[in-house]
């Protein structure tokens, strides 16, 4: 294995220089303040003392850490601790960031903000981000690729689009009005359709067996929607929830591990 062309066994110091880690376990140096901790992390990575303090404040500002940064770490809430840990991981501007359950203990607003920061780092600053989490909607929301691990083995690996693609090509219709009637009308017209519940609300999934069928199906959907009084908001390729993919891969792993019953000779 190589990280940015470096062998971690032989050049561990250089590799760690390129990596920022947010561990799942709370880890801190007792006695330091929030800004002291981030500054300490920066200095450990080789940033000079004065510059480390400036950089620590800059990163903490970006992480929305307010005046609580001047309090001792021991007095922090879980959310603030998580912000400080994240700031300490990125203070030296590493090209690779590894995060282990970074949204643990965060309220929904903080969680959204944290995911937003990760997207910004990846999209606007070209960082490679490894996110290890059990909160699969987070993965589906911000990640490009996912690896499913079960019992220490890689069970699934690929882009989110590949992993969540349904077994049969389908499109999802979202809109306002009687979606159930739309599903019924499409089924009566010979197009396989069903009503599903998603995070964003009810939707209709329609089968599009081949890519060539998609324009025809879209036309049919629009016609029947007009007939039943549904306002179509979106028509996009359907995805399986990542939880469903994850559970399916775990079941497969369990089935593979079930030992065969051996019959001893009489």
């Amino acid at each position: 294995m190589r990280v940015f062309g470096l062998d971690p066994q032989k050049a561990s110091r250089q590799v760690r220089q390129q990596v920022g880690v947010v561990p799942e376990d709370e880890s801190s140096v007792p006695g330091l303040t929030g800004v002291g901790m981030v500054r300490y992390a920066a200095r450990l990575c080789g940033i000079p003392a004065g510059e480390a303090l400036r950089r620590a404040h800059e990163v903490l500002d970006w992480c929305d850490a307010g005046q609580e940064r001047y309090r001792p770490l021991e007095t922090f809430s879980v959310g603030t601790r998580q912000k400080v840990a994240f700031a300490a991981a990125i203070v030296h501007d590493p090209p690779l960031i590894i995060l282990d359950e970074p949204t643990n203990g965060l309220d929904p607003i903080e969680r959204k903000a944290m995911l937003g920061r990760l997207v910004t780092l990846a999209r606007d600053h070209g960082k490679t981000i490894f996110l290890c989490t059990h909160v699969l909607p987070d993965v589906q929301a911000i990640c490009e690729r996912a690896i499913v691990l079960a019992a220490g083995r890689v069970r699934l690996s690929g882009s989110i689009e590949e992993l969540t693609r349904p077994a049969l090509p389908m499109h999802r219709v979202e809109g306002t009005g009687p979606l159930e009637e739309l599903a019924r009308a499409l089924s009566a017209a010979g197009i396989a359709a069903s009503l599903v519940r998603t995070i964003r609300g009810p939707a209709v999934e329609v089968a599009t067996p081949a890519d060539d069928d998609t324009p025809a199906v879209l036309r049919a959907v629009c016609e029947h929607a007009r007939d039943v009084g549904v306002g179509v908001r979106s028509f996009e390729p359907a995805q399986r929830p990542l939880e469903e993919v994850f559970i399916a891969s775990l079941r497969e792993a369990e089935a593979a591990q079930t030992p065969e019953v051996l019959h001893a000779p009489a």
């Binding site: 200095r43 450990l44 080789g46 950089r55 970006w62």
Partner: peptide, 27 residues
Amino acid sequence: VGYRSWTGVRRPPGSAAVVIASTGISL
């Protein structure tokens, strides 16, 4: 006030011991 990359010059490897010592003494 968004994220900014850092492109300064790092101290040579091995200075971490000095950082640990100075922080430990001040604590």
